[in-house]
Write a protein that binds this DNA or RNA. Structure first.
Length: 502
RNA sequence: GGCGUGUUCGUCUAGUGGCCCAGGACAUCGCCCUCUCAAGGCGAAGAUCACGGGUUCGAAUCCCGUACACGCUACCA
C-alpha cells in the first residue's frame, strides 16, 4: 500500500437528489484524496433498477460540482478505470460470480421471496436472528441439497439468485481508520445474495469488485455500512485481493437524534442552495460537522484550500452530529461580510433583473443596475443581510418605492411637530449643492441645533419615509445612495399620507 | 430479538492519566458603541464529562458492567 497513489470515491445511487449527508461523505473523500495528492472519483451505483430515477445521476454530479467537488474520473468525465456506471459493468460481475461459483464460495438459490419471508417470520417468532436457512446449499459445500436438484432447476429456467457461502465459525476482523479494531463472528453473517434474479449484482458484490478494480486505496463511507463489513471482507478474501483501508463516518442526525431525514427539515443540498446558502458556507459548515483540527485550534472559517491542507481522517469524530442551522447561518454572514463586491454583484444582478421584470420602479433602471450603484448598496448592507438575495429583498427600497410605512415605527417616531419640521427642512435638501452623506448630515445638524432639538427627531422619520422601515444602514449614506430626487419624492409622498397621531 | 457503533454546555466540539471543580465556537442574555438595524468590543449564564463499579497517589481520559440512543438485520443502497 505504501507508495500507491491515493484514490477515493463517492458512489451514490441515482435515486434522487444529493443528501447533505451524502455531500459530507463526498467532501471527506474529496478532501482526503486532495490532501494526499490523489484522485477523487464518482461512481454511480445503479444496480437497483426499480429505484432508478431519471435525471438523478446528472443532478448528483451537477450538485457535487456546484459545491466544488470536481471529480478526476466519473461517468461524464471518463477515466482509465471505467465504465463508472455499474449497469455498464454487468459482464464483469458475471465473470467474477462464475469464479466464486466454481471455487465453491457461492451457490445458486431458488427460494422464492414468499418462502424467504415465511422463513423470516418464523425465525423472528422464535426469537432467532432472521437468516437464510441454506436450503439450497449443495451437499458438497456442506449443505443438504443434492447438486442434481440444483442443476435440474437451473435447466428448467427457474429464477434464481446467487448467494455467497459464509464460512462457519470464523471471526472477521479489521481496523477502521476512525473507530479502531472491530470484530465480527461469521455465525451472525447471512449468506448474502450476490446476484439478483434480474442478473444485476447487489451493492455488496458490485462495490467490492469495483473498489478493487478501480484501485481505490481508501473507502470512506457512512456508518450504516459498518455491519456489512464482514461480507465485504470475506469477498476480498475469496478473490485473494488486498482490501483497501476503511473509514466509517458517523451519521448526520435530526434534532431528535434519529438519522437525518426529510420530514424534520430539508435534507437535499439543492434545498439549501435554493434558500441562498453559498457553497463556501455549506462546505465549511459540513466539514466541521464531525471533523475538527483539534489541539486548541480556534479557527471556524475555512476555505476549501485550507480544508484540504488541514484535513485528516484520524480527526473525524465517532459520534453522530445533529444537523442544526444556527452555525451555518453565522458562517453565511461571515462569507458575505468578506466576499468581494464583484462576486456578489454577479449573483445579485440576475435576481434584481428578475424583480424589475415583475415590478414597476420609479428609479432609473440603468442607474440601479449599474456596478457602481450595486456596489454602494452592498457596502451599506453587507453586514446586515443573512443571504445574498437579501441585498435585493431585504433592502428593496434601494430599487423600488416603499409601498407602506412600518406602522409601529410611525407611531413611535412621529410627534405632532414632525410633519411641520419635515416640510421646513425639505427646502434645505432641495438646495444642497452636493447631495452627499457629509453634506446632508451637516445640513440636518445645522437645521436642528438652533431649535434645541436632537438630530433623532428628523433622522427617524426621514429613514421611515425613505425606506418604509425602521431599520437599515446609516441614514445619511442611505439618502446619498438613493439620490436627491428619490429622497424628496418619498418625503413628499409620505407627508401627504401620514397623519399625525393626535 | 441478534449483531455493531456511539454517549463532554441547547448545538458543533477541544481534551489521549496530573496543566481541567473541563477550553473554544454558534445560539441565548446583559453591558458598551450608536440615528435604527446589523456588525464590532466586553461580559454572563450554560457540562456533577450518560450511570455504576473498579485500576491508580491521581481519571472526562484505562478496564468492566448497566442504561440510553442510533445503525444494520432485503433479490435497497
Amino acid at each position: 500500500m505504501v507508495g500507491k497513489r491515493v484514490r477515493t470515491r463517492f458512489a451514490p445511487s441515482p435515486t434522487g437528489y444529493l443528501h447533505v449527508g451524502g455531500l459530507r461523505t463526498a467532501l471527506y473523500n474529496y478532501l482526503f484524496a486532495k490532501k494526499m495528492n490523489g484522485d477523487f472519483i464518482i461512481r454511480i451505483e445503479d444496480t437497483d433498477q426499480s429505484r432508478k430515477v431519471e435525471g438523478a445521476q446528472q443532478n448528483l454530479i451537477k450538485t457535487l460540482e456546484w459545491a466544488g467537488l470536481l471529480p478526476d474520473e466519473s461517468p461524464v468525465h471518463g477515466g482509465n478505470f471505467g465504465p463508472y456506471l455499474q449497469s455498464d459493468r454487468l459482464e464483469l460481475y458475471a465473470g467474477y460470480c462464475r469464479q466464486l461459483l466454481e471455487e465453491g464460495n457461492a451457490y445458486y438459490c431458488f427460494a422464492t421471496s414468499e418462502e424467504l419471508e415465511e422463513n423470516r417470520q418464523l425465525q423472528m417468532k422464535q426469537g432467532l436472528q432472521p437468516k437464510y436457512n441454506r436450503k439450497w446449499l449443495p451437499e458438497d459445500m456442506g449443505g443438504s441439497m443434492p447438486r442434481s436438484e440444483s442443476e435440474k432447476m437451473l435447466a428448467s429456467g427457474a429464477p434464481y439468485v446467487i448467494r455467497m457461502k459464509v464460512p462457519d465459525y470464523v471471526s472477521v476482523w479489521f481496523e477502521d481508520i476512525i473507530r479502531g479494531p472491530i470484530e465480527f463472528d461469521s455465525a451472525t453473517i447471512d449468506d448474502q445474495v450476490l446476484m439478483k434474479s434480474d442478473g444485476f449484482p447487489t451493492y455488496h458484490f458490485a462495490s467490492v469488485i469495483d473498489d478493487h478494480l478501480m484501485e481505490f486505496t481508501h473507502i470512506i463511507r457512512g456508518e450504516e455500512w459498518l455491519p456489512s463489513m464482514p461480507k465485504h471482507l470475506l469477498l476480498y478474501e475469496f478473490f485473494g485481493w488486498e482490501p483497501p483501508k476503511f473509514a466509517h463516518l458517523p451519521l448526520l442526525l435530526n434534532p431528535d437524534r434519529s438519522k437525518l431525514s426529510k420530514r424534520q427539515g430539508d435534507v437535499a443540498v439543492e434545498d439549501y442552495i435554493q434558500k441562498g446558502y453559498s457553497k463556501e458556507a455549506i462546505i465549511n459548515f459540513i466539514a466541521l460537522l464531525g471533523w475538527n483540527e483539534g489541539e486548541g485550534c480556534e479557527q471556524e472559517v475555512y476555505s476549501m484550500e485550507q480544508l484540504i491542507e488541514k484535513f485528516s481522517l484520524e480527526r473525524v469524530g465517532k459520534a453522530g452530529s445533529i444537523f442544526t442551522l444556527d452555525k451555518l447561518n453565522w458562517l453565511e454572514k461571515q462569507y458575505i461580510k468578506n466576499r468581494p463586491a464583484e462576486k456578489i454583484i454577479d449573483t445579485i444582478r440576475p435576481l434584481l433583473q428578475n424583480e424589475l421584470s415583475l415590478k414597476e420602479t420609479m428609479l432609473e433602471r440603468e442607474v440601479i443596475t449599474s456596478d457602481a450603484y450595486l456596489r454602494q448598496v452592498i457596502e451599506l448592507m453587507r453586514e446586515r443581510v443573512g443571504f445574498e438575495h437579501e441585498f435585493v429583498t431585504f433592502s428593496s427600497y434601494f430599487f423600488f418605492e416603499p409601498d407602506a410605512w412600518e406602522e409601529e415605527a410611525v407611531k413611535k417616531r412621529w410627534t405632532p411637530d414632525t410633519n411641520a419640521l419635515l416640510s421646513e427642512f425639505l427646502p434645505t435638501l432641495e438646495v444642497l449643492p452636493e447631495f452627499t452623506s457629509e453634506a446632508i448630515e451637516a445640513a440636518l445638524k445645522a437645521f436642528v441645533e438652533p431649535k434645541g432639538l436632537k438630530a433623532a427627531v428628523l433622522i427617524h422619520p426621514l429613514r421611515i419615509l425613505a425606506s418604509g422601515v425602521s431599520f437599515g444602514p446609516s441614514l445619511y449614506h442611505m439618502l446619498e445612495v438613493l439620490g436627491r430626487e428619490a429622497v424628496l419624492r418619498r418625503i413628499r409622498k409620505g407627508m401627504e399620507c401620514i397623519t399625525v397621531p393626535a
